[in-house]
Amino acid sequence: MTAITTNKLSKSYGGVIALRGLDLDVHLGEIFGFLGPNGAGKTTTIRCLLDLIRSDSGTANVLGLDPQTDPVGVRARVGYLPGELHLEDNLTGRRILRYFSALRGRKLESDNVNVLAERLRLDLDQPVKNLSKGNKQKIGLVQAFLHQPELLLLDEPTSGLDPLVQQEVQGLIREAKAKGATVFFSSHVMSEVEAIAERVGIIREGTLVEVANTAALIDRAVHRVKVRFQSPVDTDVLERVPGLAVLSQDDLDGMTLQVEGDMDGLVKALAAYPVARIETTRASLEDVFLAYYQTDESPTEEE
């Protein structure tokens, strides 16, 4: 069973198309990172899953329920953090959390609230109007995690937070997963996604262009290799190796190469040369992400 399934989900705002037949599967119990630049359709996807907006066509399924026919059932099992968090300015964090708990038909569990607030270094007794963006974000995080939902939909969860609290949020996400929750989150912080997401999906202009295991996606990425030879060499042979490109030649005995996929071809080609030193730079998720957006056609579409 999947936690989230969308089938050809489409949504437009007037004449602007936000989602174009999105097909997505998020497995139960996984941490799924949803990547894309502003306007790619991340927030629209999340809001369709909660029935805050209605898709034009296609279907969505969340924890076995259709958000359009049973929105209350879906929301009862989901914790949501919006990308742009707005709260009542005159209320304190505690009052807001009490109100949200009442909407769930529960009383505010003070012990849990205090533990979460302490971990996120949040003062719950300050009016929201006195809080910084980061501290407001912490209230949003507390309300999302508080009732220990089966599914967390987090839109830019660490936006506006300092690095220490970002680490704490990553810890909360991992703990939620350890307790069996599914986490679906969008982020622009690639290092964060790389650190916690087991799988990532990359969305571009409303279409999912890639879904893969995070580590495998990075392994498939383009790597840069700096090679220094013991003596000047003829690089013609290297340029003929599939997946290998010479980016620059520093001098007669040094060059920078770009390797797509695994290194086997490069290693075998270099065996014929007197190599003094090899330096490889590990690709990051950011490199992978940028690769999808710096070319006209994504790798998936080329295939």
């Binding site: 989901v78 919006p82 707005h86 709260l87 909407l103």
Partner: peptide, 15 residues
């Protein structure tokens, strides 16, 4: 308009 309804409506309460 102020963006608050988004989070309120994400709770288990029907419209």
């Amino acid at each position: 308009e102020s963006g608050r309804l988004d989070l309120i409506m994400a709770h288990p309460v029907s419209r």
